[in-house]
Design a binder for these strands. Structure first.
Lengths: 235, 235
DNA sequence: GTCCGTCTGTGCTGCAACACACATATAGAG
DNA sequence: CTCTATATGTGTGTTGCAGCACAGACGGAC
C-alpha cells in the first residue's frame, strides 16, 4: 500500500506529525485489520507493536477475578494502544479488546521507542495523548460513582460515535453491558428509554443514533469534560 | 536546611535518582508545608511548581458542577503532584487537595521541564510514576462500578496508610465521604461495621487502624492490583 | 418454509446506597 | 462548667440496579 493511502483513512495522532518525522516512521507502519471481539493484549501481556487505530475502536477493560468486567478507557483514530510501551512499564493490568471492527496501523515496539527517545513531536504527541487518556479514565471513575446507567450509556454512545464515521454501531446490548460493567437487562431498559425518546433506534446488534444533540442533552457533564480535554490536548 | 536533612524524610521517587541527577536538582528543591484541606491547584489551574510529597498526602478530586466530588487518585511520598507539567497539557480538569497535612519538596516548573527533557532517569521515573497513577485511576473506576462502599472504604484506608508512617489518620467521616463521592451516613455505617469487627477504631476525626491484615482481607482486589503495580513500576 | 441460536423484553425479589430528618456525643472555647 | 460547633448515630422511605427466571422476536442455516 502506497504511503498516501496509508494516511487517507488515517490516525489523527500520526496526521499531526511533521513530515520529517513521518518520513522516518512511514516505512515502519504496517496496516492491520481487527475483527469484533479480538483481544489485542491481555492483562500483564507484552506487546510486540504499538497500534494506531484508523477505523477500529479499542476498549481497555479490566477483568475481575470473578469474570465480570468494566471499561476504563477507549481508543480510536484519535489515539493509540500501547501506552505502557513508552511509559516504561511494558505492561498494564488490563485487556485491550476490539469494540468495533476496523483497521489500524502498527509499528514495532523497538522502532517506536527509538523515535520516542528522540524527544521530538512524536514524544510530545504521545505524552499529550496519554494525558487525555488519563482524563478519560478518571472521568470514567467519577461517572461510575455519580451518574445513572442511562447517562453512562449516552456517554458511551457518544464516545463511540466520535470515533466512527457512521451513526450505526454494530454492538449488542450484552457487549455494551460488559463494557459498562452492568447487567444486560439494565442496558435494555436504558436503551429502551432512549429509543422511546427518539434518540436512538436499534435492532438485534445494530444501534443507530438518530438525534445526537438529544443524546448530548441527556448525557452527564463527564462526556463534555473528556471531549474538551481531547480537543484541547490534541485538537 | 542542609541537603541531607531534605532527604531524610524523603520522597521515594527522588530517592531513586542517581546522585548525578540529584546533585543538579538539589539546589532547586524547596521545602513546603501543607495544612489539611489546602488546595494545591484548581481544576484547569496552572502550577508554578511540581510537588514531591514527603509526609503530606494529596488527593486528586473531580468537582461536579452540582458541588459533589469524587477522588480519582491520591499521591504521597511515592509520587508527585503536577503530572500535566511534563505531560504537556499544563493543566488537568481536577483539583488537588491536601488530604493529610504534612510536607513536600517543590521544584519550579521550568527547572523540572528542563531536567525532564534531558531524557535521563528523571524522565524515566516520572513516566513510570504516571503509569502507576493511571492504574490507580482506572482501578478506581472499576472499584466505583463494581464494589461496595465498605470495600472501597477499606481500599481508601489502606492506600492512605501506605502513604503515612502511622496507623492514626486525622480525617472525619464527612471528608472521607467527599473523597469517595458518597454520603457521610454511608461512611458512618461502613466504618461502624469495620469498628465492630475490630479492624479500626475512631473518635471524632481520628481513625486508628487496628488490624491491617483484617482490612486486607475485607478489601476488594483493586487495592492489591494498584499496590502491585506501584511496587512493580517504582519498587 | 422450519429450526435453532442469539438478541431483546419484562416481571419479580432483594439489596445497597440515597435523601432527608433529627438525635446524640464530643472537643474545645469561654 | 457550660455552651456551641462539629462529628457521629439512627430511622423511614425511595431509587437504581442486581440477580434470577423466562417469554418473545428476529435472523441465518438448512
Amino acid at each position: 500500500m502506497p504511503p498516501s493511502t496509508l494516511e487517507q483513512v488515517g490516525n489523527r495522532l500520526l496526521a499531526r506529525l511533521p513530515e520529517e518525522e513521518m518520513e522516518r516512521l512511514r516505512p515502519h507502519l504496517e496496516h492491520v485489520s481487527f475483527t469484533l471481539g479480538e483481544v489485542i493484549y491481555e492483562s500483564g501481556g507484552r506487546q510486540s507493536h504499538i497500534y494506531f487505530p484508523t477505523t477500529a475502536i479499542i476498549s481497555l477493560l479490566y477483568m475481575m477475578e470473578n469474570g465480570s468486567s468494566a471499561e476504563m478507557g477507549v481508543a480510536g483514530n484519535d489515539g493509540l494502544v500501547g501506552i505502557a510501551l513508552f511509559m516504561g512499564g511494558d505492561t498494564v493490568p488490563n485487556r485491550a479488546v476490539v469494540q468495533s471492527a476496523g483497521d489500524a496501523l502498527r509499528m514495532q515496539t523497538k522502532v517506536m521507542q527509538e523515535e520516542f527517545a528522540q524527544g521530538g513531536t512524536f514524544q510530545r504527541l504521545l505524552l499529550r495523548y496519554t494525558q487525555a487518556l488519563m482524563t478519560q479514565m478518571s472521568q470514567t471513575a467519577v461517572c461510575n460513582r455519580l451518574h445513572t446507567l442511562e447517562q453512562q450509556l449516552c456517554r458511551w454512545l457518544l464516545l463511540s460515535r466520535d470515533r466512527l464515521n457512521t451513526d450505526e454501531l454494530v454492538m449488542t446490548q450484552e457487549l455494551i453491558a460488559n463494557m459498562l460493567g452492568v447487567r444486560r437487562e439494565g442496558v435494555t431498559q436504558a436503551a429502551g428509554r432512549l429509543q422511546k425518546n427518539g434518540l436512538i433506534s436499534y435492532v438485534r446488534g445494530r444501534i443507530t443514533i438518530l438525534d445526537r444533540s438529544g443524546l448530548e442533552a441527556t448525557v452527564c457533564e463527564c462526556y463534555r469534560v473528556v471531549k474538551d480535554e481531547y480537543d484541547r490536548l490534541l485538537g
